[in-house]
Amino acid sequence: MDMQSVITAAIEAVAAEQGKTLRPLTDDLVLLESGLDSLCFAILVTRLEDEVGFDPFTLSDDVYFPVTLGDFIRFYDDAARSQAAPTLAA
């Protein structure tokens, strides 16, 4: 499954479990307007870490908060690529 499908499936699962109504999950959807509250995002990040094996927020040295769903998916995609790439430091 590609990252986009993994993330949208996880978002739908968290929303269903927390009883939240979601706006349509388009790339330009602003996360804060998606229908999920901050607890839902916290749950989402933890579940995704369990599923994909990393949490890009703690991997990154910069403080970065994605604004749209598209940003969020790219953030995970980028982290996945740097995870897969061998690094000299390792």
């Binding site: 916290a42 749950i43 933890t46």
Partner: peptide, 8 residues
């Protein structure tokens, strides 16, 4: 630890 809520 969690980046959104500090902890979960």
């Amino acid at each position: 630890s969690n980046p959104i809520t500090g902890a979960i």
